[in-house]
């Protein structure tokens, strides 16, 4: 009894930082290992990458070249192609995926819907596959004489096979379709669990006032889910800007460089071509800048809409 009172008095003094200040050191013992490991395997290599990006040369024969690597970026057609592809994937795939996932979650949130659990499991199922495994499956599904072309031809939707893998436009579409297939269900689960916390009476009141399904979606659902939409859009952004497994295993970056991503280009520069670690590091900072840039924009957008 006495201890609880004592606790209360300590709590009221300093609600936020309530645990015994004299135990300060032991707290650091708990976090020390993590701090060391994150510094060693994230911040230190990041610093190394920054230093490397001002050097150039094949393999280990590096010399300091100043900002030459960064100026080279702007006249490197392969980098510009990879940048363009990555931005296209991001701009198309992330919004499309989030809208589809939101749509499914609203449909599945209806308690009167039959087979809810079945639909939910089926749509979530792609999220259990490994990125490499599903990429290889998609490669064969969408090969020029693959099953997708056969099905589309049999349904008379197309008269001749679409050259999914050898047409620059369709190859990008395959990558976008693949990522969307993999991640819609995953994101849907986040929205679904957030929707379950939304009070049903809000919708009832809106319906009484004659709000249409669309109005309910845009005026109630989206504002209510804003924090979680922001969370999923930032994680998707970080994921898409780093895209590697899919183009590597579905198209190999081709045809030409039509589906090449920045991550894949960095990999090629470092481990496929004559290694140029310095230039590869400069390219990698392009992703860093983009992640920071797009994340800030999304925070701003989410803030302004309120």
């Amino acid at each position: 009894m006495e201890t609880t009172n004592l606790n209360k008095s300590i709590k009221s003094k300093n609600e936020k930082y309530k645990f015994r200040p004299k135990k300060g050191l032991i707290g650091w013992v708990f976090v020390l290992l993590s701090v060391i490991l994150i510094c060693l395997f994230y911040f230190y290599p990041m610093l190394q990458a920054l230093l490397l990006s001002f050097q150039s040369g094949a393999g280990v024969n590096l010399e300091f070249v100043g900002i030459e690597n960064y100026t080279r970026l702007f006249s490197d057609p392969t980098f510009l192609a990879a940048l363009f592809n990555t931005v296209i994937y991001f701009l198309i795939q992330v919004p499309v995926m989030i809208i589809i996932a939101l749509m499914f979650s609203v449909m599945l949130n209806n308690k009167k819907l039959k087979f809810r659990g079945l639909f939910r499991t089926a749509i979530f199922l792609p999220a259990v596959t490994s990125l490499v495994a599903y990429s290889v499956i998609f490669k064969y599904l969408f090969s020029n004489n693959g099953i997708i072309n056969t099905i589309l031809t049999n349904l008379s939707l197309i008269s001749e096979p679409i050259l999914w893998m050898s047409d620059p436009f369709w190859a990008k579409i395959v990558i976008i379709l693949a990522i969307t297939w993999r991640w819609v269900g995953y994101n849907m689960i986040f929205y679904l669990s957030a929707l379950q916390n939304v009070d049903e009476s809000i919708y009832e009141a809106a319906r009484m006032d004659g709000a249409s399904a669309f109005q309910q979606f845009f005026k109630i659902t989206i504002p209510m889910l804003k924090p979680i939409i922001l969370f999923t859009s930032i994680t998707s952004t970080i994921g898409t800007l780093q895209l590697f497994d899919e183009p590597m295993n579905i198209t190999g970056g081709g045809p030409g460089n039509a589906t090449l991503t920045i991550s894949q280009y960095i990999y090629n520069l470092s481990f496929e071509y004559t290694p140029d670690f310095g230039y590869a590091s400069a390219v990698s900072f392009a992703i860093v800048v983009m992640i920071v840039f797009f994340s800030i924009i999304q925070f701003k957008l989410a803030g302004d809409k309120k």
Partner: peptide
């Protein structure tokens, strides 16, 4: 500060890590 490491793309780390 540790959370900031979530923003670092692995592609930027792989070359230094490989050298390490």
């Amino acid at each position: 500060i540790l959370l900031l490491s979530m923003m670092i793309p692995f592609a930027a780390l792989m070359v230094p890590l490989f050298r390490m």
